[in-house]
């Protein structure tokens, strides 16, 4: 679906067809959930954040500036919702990072593909856990660019649009965030990334 049709869907929702909003939810729920999960590391919290993101988007749909892409606006809401969530959670211990009951894709059952080596799966899971923990130790600004650019694979221009900062700032933050992340990972893994 092209961006033009996103705009068309938005117009139909604004005209009163609430169920049309399902088109946007179905289209972007995976990406928004992924961003949320990489912020909070807990599938339940990530789903709450994703749900809240879509609710906020629906409630503020009239404020959406059709000059920009709908998905960058949605990402911005998701990032802000995740940051708010983490600020509220600061008083609670961050237990979810070490929670082993979840698979990497949330509540998905583990793969039943016999060709998959369980040791590889375990190693990948451990790597993901360590990476998410390291990401959680970054500042809000650096965490946002790492998640959007390096994890979600968005371009620096898209990240700039989402975070409302110049592309040059995104570029320098990506560089700083990677250097900081490497430093954290070295520290966590005893100089063996």
């Amino acid at each position: 679906m092209t961006e033009q049709t996103d705009q068309a869907v938005v117009q139909r929702v604004l005209a009163g067809d609430t169920d049309e909003f399902s088109t946007l939810v179905n289209k972007y729920q995976d990406r928004i959930y992924s961003v949320a999960l990489n912020y909070v590391s807990n599938p339940e919290d990530a789903m709450d954040i994703a749900q809240e993101t879509f609710l906020k988007a629906y409630s503020n749909l009239r404020r959406f500036d059709s000059a920009s892409a709908f998905y960058t606006w949605l990402y911005r809401i998701a990032v802000n919702t995740a940051i708010d969530f983490l600020r509220k959670r600061k008083s609670r211990p961050a237990d979810s990072l070490d929670d082993e009951k979840y698979t990497e894709v949330g509540f998905e059952p583990e793969s039943k593909d016999r060709a998959v080596d369980p040791e590889d799966v375990a190693a990948q899971r451990e790597q993901a856990r360590i990476l998410r923990k390291a990401i959680s130790m970054l500042s809000d600004k650096l965490r946002a660019v790492i998640i959007l650019h390096d994890v979600e694979g968005l371009s620096q221009e898209e990240v700039a649009d989402i975070l409302k900062i110049p592309v040059g700032t995104v570029k320098s933050r990506v560089s700083r965030a990677r250097a900081e992340l490497r430093r954290i990972l070295r520290k966590m893994m005893g100089d063996a990334v």
């Binding site: 609430t18 928004i32 990489n38 789903m47 749900q51 949330g106 790597q127 998410r132 390096d150």
Partner: peptide
């Protein structure tokens, strides 16, 4: 390369019913 692998391919549940 490892960071890119953190992206989640899909949401574990369909969010629309709850959102609606």
């Amino acid at each position: 390369s490892a960071l890119r692998s953190l992206a989640v391919p899909r949401s574990p549940v369909d969010l629309w019913p709850q959102v609606r």
